[in-house]
């Protein structure tokens, strides 16, 4: 596969996530969804790139995401209709209408739901990986990685040399508190101190690929990926206009083909939402 085609594939996944989140944004504003919703628009290139790499390696990891999980779910092939239904609180939802936005779960893609205590998924992921010896991915935020129990989990994963990947989707925010106001260390350095192979990169698919191609699931790896959150921490709103998010950059680079893909996916998702709302 040519590199451009590879990027197109990732773009397709990311476009699905972005269009989905834009649609949820509308539905929240229409008050069709009334519980807290955590939109991942802007950050979708992190799970999309990783999902593509994992797919190419023909792996089916255990996935432990946290609250901002729509793009993780969709990138790894979670059923869209079931996610729509979940957000509409229907029994046919991926978590039988109990999960809302924060606690989505899918047996089909081995995604475990989150219970809302930030960072807990690092502990569960490490335990599940240790006891099953299955490849595992834990998605965290730049704030969750500060939790003491996350650090303890990193340490044990390193000690036991588990086939696990820790991904920090670093959007610089804990709600609205910036990283510089919370700590003076880099997650990558702390992970390295625990003897993990660790990286601090931006969300270019090429960079993500280059750090994962060799050792993914052969040893524990920690990547801190700098990315941008387009919308509010929770709910549908905009804190400040974000320039240069990854999807926009990639769309521009990939040109007409990407435009077309994006338009088609947008239509598809709008239709799916309409259908599920009419049901």
């Amino acid at each position: 596969m040519s590199y451009k085609n590879y990027r197109l594939k990732i773009f397709e996944k990311a476009s699905l996530c972005r269009n989905f989140e834009n649609e949820v944004f509308k539905r929240v504003n229409e008050k069709l969804i009334n519980f807290p919703v955590y939109l991942s628009a802007g950050q979708e290139y992190v799970p999309s790139s990783i999902a593509q790499i994992v797919k190419d390696k023909k792996q089916k990891p255990l996935i432990f995401g946290q609250h901002r999980g729509h793009s993780i779910y969709l990138s790894f092939g979670g059923n869209i209709i079931e996610l729509i239904d979940e957000l509409l609180g229907k029994k046919t939802g991926c978590t039988r209408g109990m999960g809302g936005s924060l606690s989505i779960n899918s047996n089909k893609i081995n995604m475990f739901g989150h219970e809302g205590l930030m960072g807990s998924n690092a502990c569960m992921g490490v335990g599940a990986c240790f006891s099953s010896a299955k490849p595992t991915i834990v998605f965290l935020g730049d704030a969750s990685v500060e939790e003491d129990y996350v650090l303890a989990s990193l340490s044990w994963a390193a000690k036991k040399e588990l086939p696990i990947l820790f991904v920090v989707e670093d959007n610089n925010y804990a709600v609205l508190t910036k990283k510089k106001d919370r700590r003076d260390w880099k997650a990558k350095d702390v992970a390295k101190a625990f003897k993990l192979e660790s990286y601090d990169i931006d969300d270019q698919p090429k960079k993500i690929f280059s750090v994962l191609k060799k050792n993914l699931f052969k040893k524990p790896i920690f990547i801190n990926v700098n990315t941008k959150r387009l919308f509010w921490h929770s709910g549908a709103g905009v804190d400040e206009e974000v320039k240069g998010d990854r999807l926009t950059i990639e769309k521009k680079f990939l040109g007409k083909k990407a435009d077309k893909i994006h338009r088609n996916i947008k239509k598809k998702i709008e239709n799916l939402w309409k259908q599920r709302l009419e049901k």
């Binding site: 807990s120 502990c123 569960m124 099953s132």
Partner: peptide, 25 residues
């Protein structure tokens, strides 16, 4: 028989992970 580190909070979560994958810890 698995020795856990001195990390009681994380340990409860790690054993939960073991339970989730059916090892009946």
């Amino acid at each position: 028989v698995i020795e856990l580190p001195m990390a009681d909070v994380a340990n409860g979560g790690m054993v939960t992970g073991a339970a989730l994958v059916g090892r009946r810890p």
